Amino acid sequence: MQIARVCGTVVSTQKEPTLRGVKFLLVQLLNEEGQPLPEYEVAADTVGAGIDEWVLVSRGSAARQTPGGESRPLDALVIGIIDTVSFDNHLLYRKRDQDR
């Protein structure tokens, strides 16, 4: 798995039939210190992530290991929305409180 930040959305009206109804996000991968890497990925979203949220991305064949995903041509899948990340006893990220 990789930690990434959601940067945008990708819309595709014409796509492989097994991908109909699937939401796609543009995510930027992050290093262990929370700094952006020069890599971006388009990932299918099954958890309803939004712009600027940090997410867990499953990549490669693991992205197809969800019910119904076995036959989808996916290389990356958002599998979780991150609440907090700590590294070396330092808080790197905390999800913003949506009620404020």
Score class of each variant (00 low, 15 high):
M1L: 07
Q2L: 11
A4F: 09
R5G: 05
R5K: 13
V6L: 01
C7Q: 00
G8V: 11
V10C: 08
V10N: 06
V10R: 03
V11Y: 13
S12H: 06
T13I: 04
T13Y: 03
E16T: 11
P17F: 00
P17C: 06
P17N: 05
P17E: 11
T18R: 03
L19V: 07
V22T: 14
K23I: 10
K23A: 13
F24E: 14
F24S: 07
L25N: 13
L25R: 09
Q28S: 08
L29I: 05
L30Q: 13
N31S: 06
E32Y: 12
E33N: 12
G34F: 04
G34I: 03
P36T: 12
P38K: 05
E39V: 10
E39P: 04
E39D: 15
Y40L: 13
E41P: 01
D45K: 00
T46W: 07
V47S: 09
V47H: 04
V47N: 08
G48N: 14
A49P: 09
A49E: 13
A49N: 09
G50D: 13
I51S: 06
I51R: 08
D52R: 06
W54F: 06
W54S: 00
V55P: 13
V55Y: 01
L56I: 15
S58Q: 11
S58V: 10
G60A: 06
Q65W: 01
Q65S: 12
Q65P: 05
Q65E: 14
T66N: 06
T66F: 02
T66L: 03
P67E: 06
G69F: 07
E70R: 04
S71M: 11
R72G: 06
R72F: 02
D75W: 06
L77W: 10
V78L: 06
G80S: 14
G80W: 05
G80R: 00
I81D: 04
I81F: 00
I82V: 15
I82E: 08
D83H: 09
T84M: 14
T84R: 11
T84G: 10
T84H: 03
V85E: 05
V85H: 01
V85M: 03
F87V: 09
D88E: 10
D88L: 00
D88N: 09
N89I: 09
L91I: 12
L91E: 15
L91M: 14
L92T: 08
R94S: 10
R94F: 01
R94L: 08
R96G: 14
R96Q: 12
D97E: 14
Q98E: 15
D99W: 14
D99E: 14
R100W: 15
